Simulated scan of single mutants.
Amino acid sequence: MTDLDPVLGDVRQGMMSAHIYNDEEIFRLEKERLFSQAWLFVGRESEIPQSGDYVVHRVLDDSFIPSRGEDGQVRALFNMRLHRGMQVCRDEMGNASHFRCPYHG
């Protein structure tokens, strides 16, 4: 789909065609203009109650590791090592004192 004018016209009138939920071009534009411009939910604090707890969640094409540090602070890490693009954490959840690159250790 390249011409979005009919879709936008329908939305302005309060109507949405069901096809927009499966349209690749609309999804590409949403990723570019909406999801990349706003804060995104990556998990609940209750999923990581203890120090060292972590979960891995995917958001679109990316993977994140929300974790609770020894100081009790919640942090979210990008689950990819920039060198060689290696995924840092492969488990869905667990408890760890730190994360290591599987390639370099």
Results as ranks from 00 to 15, higher is better:
47 E>F: 11
27 F>M: 09
58 R>Q: 14
23 D>F: 05
30 E>G: 02
43 G>N: 09
71 D>A: 03
85 G>K: 08
84 R>G: 05
12 R>P: 00
34 L>F: 15
92 E>P: 03
13 Q>Y: 02
49 P>T: 08
19 H>G: 02
70 E>C: 03
76 A>R: 02
80 M>R: 15
27 F>P: 00
97 S>H: 13
5 D>N: 13
55 V>S: 03
82 L>Q: 14
6 P>R: 04
46 S>W: 08
7 V>R: 05
62 D>E: 14
54 Y>I: 01
13 Q>A: 15
64 F>P: 02
26 I>G: 02
21 Y>R: 00
100 R>Q: 10
69 G>S: 09
56 V>F: 01
7 V>A: 10
54 Y>H: 02
38 A>W: 11
72 G>W: 10
8 L>P: 02
96 A>W: 12
49 P>C: 07
76 A>P: 07
54 Y>M: 04
31 K>M: 10
68 R>A: 09
47 E>G: 04
93 M>W: 14
25 E>M: 10
40 L>S: 10
8 L>F: 15
103 Y>C: 10
67 S>F: 06
28 R>A: 14
33 R>T: 03
16 M>V: 15
73 Q>E: 14
83 H>P: 00
33 R>K: 10
18 A>P: 01
76 A>Y: 05
15 M>T: 04
39 W>Y: 13
70 E>W: 10
59 V>C: 06
105 G>R: 01
5 D>I: 12
79 N>V: 03
34 L>K: 03
71 D>P: 09
28 R>G: 12
103 Y>K: 03
66 P>F: 00
89 C>L: 02
6 P>T: 06
55 V>T: 14
26 I>R: 00
14 G>R: 09
85 G>C: 08
